[in-house]
Design a protein around this nucleic acid. Structure first.
Lengths: 138, 138
DNA sequence: GATAAATGCTCTAGTTACTAGAGCTTCAAG
DNA sequence: CTTGAAGCTCTAGTAACTAGAGCATTTATC
């Protein structure tokens, strides 16, 4: 039997976050001690580690909820689980592409400015004021 | 004299967002018509375009506030403006690095699964359940 | 000049995934 | 048996908007 603090230490998920996940329905409401404190078992530890891992990979709560539901039907085909992961991968790739464009634009703006002159002539400010100074679209 | 809708159309910033920026102090409270509607001029158009552009580049509101304040002292040195942009560039680069790690891990997980078997054997679910199946740290 | 549609106003609340804090209770160690 | 750590619930705050209610004004048409 683990207290919420034990569970927290073992999974790296903060105590209030565990309670939040319970509220969101990602983990079942734990049994309680006589004094109304949450008590957990090995199963909960595994479930929470699963959630933690999925969150670290950037999956959002609805996606995790769905994966948990799927994992409770071991004999069903796994196409849905695969799709969730693949969709997320696509989203991550898109985000990277968008950020790379930003990186380029910022790089260009920053490289025109060495911080050694006045605001009036500052390329950073000028570039922000005038979109025409940009190369790509964003 | 432009209405808030005119301003919105010309800058691509939605009407409620313009009001929000006013509330946040990014643009000055506009003059009002007799019937209490906001009326804007060319200056406001430029200011809002500046904000829009900075937001598109991913700068947050405190940073934009600071840039606006700086831009109002044209003869000061521009080191601060340069620093804001450079810091943001660094943050963007970090985010890209983090996402690339995620991309790799997800790629690996997804590539092990073709959606054609059962949840029980599904690599997506197994990988999430067991962090030891991962290659990098995340 | 009347009327109706479009636009504008303010205010409140919702979004995501937590985090912080208040005020109180329970647990574990000595 | 005391005391300090840990736990409990509940509310509110974060970032940058977005949605909607309920009402007022403006503009175009007749």
């Amino acid at each position: 039997m683990l207290s919420i603090g034990d569970l927290s230490r073992r999974t790296g998920v903060k105590v209030p976050t565990i309670r939040y996940y319970e509220q969101m329905g990602l983990i079942e409401a734990a049994e309680r001690s006589e004094g109304n404190q949450r008590r957990y078992e090995r199963d909960d530890l595994e479930r929470l580690a699963f959630i933690r891992h999925a969150r670290d990979l950037g999956l959002d709560i609805p996606a995790i909820r769905e994966l948990i539901a799927l994992s409770q039907h071991p004999s069903e085909p796994c196409a849905d689980a695969d799709r969730i992961a693949a969709d997320h991968l696509a989203a991550v790739r898109e985000k990277i592409q968008r950020l790379k464009k930003l990186e380029q634009e910022l790089e260009r703006i920053v490289s025109h400015c060495d911080g050694g002159h006045s605001i009036e002539e500052c390329y950073v400010i000028r570039a922000l004021s005038d979109h025409r100074l940009c190369e790509g679209e964003h």
